[in-house]
Design a protein around this nucleic acid. Structure first.
Lengths: 215, 215
DNA sequence: ACCTGAACACCGTTCAAGT
DNA sequence: ACCTGAACACCGTTCAAGT
């Protein structure tokens, strides 16, 4: 069990009763709704509380400051993305690196495009808070999943698996991020879904000790 | 000539005299200084004005709101990056795609790592304002430069040059962005400088009609 | 003409008063 | 025990008064 570092961003108290859980859920939902509907500058604690149907004071019992609100919403989102990638990686074990590349990229893109508006809003707001530890945790989970998967590739072996995984991870998540920053319009997303697997597969082939077609 | 869309983010008046230019320069410099020294949450208009040695009122003559301040600072930074890439692309004309890939990546990374702290601060703050048009302009410049360069590659031809350029651009800028978001520590930057050219070159080879070594 | 900074509206956060 | 929302400190922005 990892010792959870206190960042001061967690909810002040964990919800223990059904009513509290409902309140936290309502507040998180309200945060995304306000964010998508009114934009980051109009995301105020008062507006979120109002939308969630609770008083500011009550909200501050669960979220000690605005940052913790954004942190919680982002955490939920990124947890979902990481889980999706983990699931995909498990199913892609023992396949070719080309299959793996397109499988992982598509799983990641699927998770990010379930709700394009929400993803966009969360990307925009992610700079307002210190999420380096959260990003660290999520990218570790994704890296671990990809690494385990790659180790079972049927047509390749890698000398420096962790570097390969690192590069794959930052290129994939980065490319997606930049496309969202530029508006995440349909054609861009389509191009990404088409080309990113090609790029990842090409990289994997380039850095692998190709097992099957060794000269 | 492109018709400049009015975004409301430009300085209220263009500085016409030496004194005004100095003021604008001082304010922009102060913005980065406050941002790096105190962090995004403590970047207040009062603090920037104080640091720049002008009154808030005067500052508001040149920058109609806080957003326009951030916009101007980001614009200057991204202009520098785009210029660096354009310069590199010109020098890389008529070389191999592997040379091009590592040349462009290194030029981009060099521009972003001249001042790592400033780059990091600007990435963090880029979500607070609407910079889709600015990002659009910058990525168009970079795409145009890369496209012209790739067209002169000695060892490859491309069917869909604009898609190839798009993918290269988002993967490169995205990977760098994500690494900065995760702290931009030396080892990460080194890994990026090592692997990103490999990845870009591998992609270029994969999507090219390889001219020299056609089977 | 240009600059200044007190003043205003609004936001994040708290805590005395209520149930 | 728990909730409320007026109150406080602070920030972005303006504009009457000063030079």
């Amino acid at each position: 069990m990892t010792t959870a570092r206190r960042t001061g961003l967690e909810p002040r108290k964990r919800p223990r009763q059904a009513r509290s859980t409902a309140t936290v859920e309502a507040v998180l939902e309200a945060t995304i709704q306000v964010l998508v509907a009114e934009g980051a500058p109009r995301l105020t604690t008062t507006r979120v509380a109002e939308r969630a149907g609770v008083s500011v004071g009550t909200m501050y019992q669960y979220f000690p400051h605005k940052q913790s609100l954004l942190y919680a919403v982002l955490e939920r989102h990124l947890d979902g993305v990481a889980s999706a990638v983990e699931r995909a990686c498990r199913q892609l074990q023992a396949s070719s690196i080309a299959t793996m590349a397109s499988g992982v990229v598509n799983a990641y893109l699927d998770a990010k495009t379930v709700d394009v508006e929400a993803s966009r809003a969360l990307y925009m707001v992610s700079g307002e808070i210190d999420i380096s530890d959260l990003l660290g945790r999520i990218s570790k989970r994704i890296a671990a999943a990809i690494e385990e998967m790659l180790a079972t590739a049927t047509d390749a072996e890698f000398d420096d698996l962790s570097t390969v995984t690192f590069t794959l991870g930052v290129a994939m998540s980065g490319a997606v991020r930049v496309v969202f920053d530029r508006g995440a319009k349909k054609p861009m997303l389509r191009a990404l879904r088409e080309e990113l697997p090609t790029m990842c597969a090409a990289y994997l082939i380039a850095v692998s000790n190709n097992v099957l077609s060794r000269k």
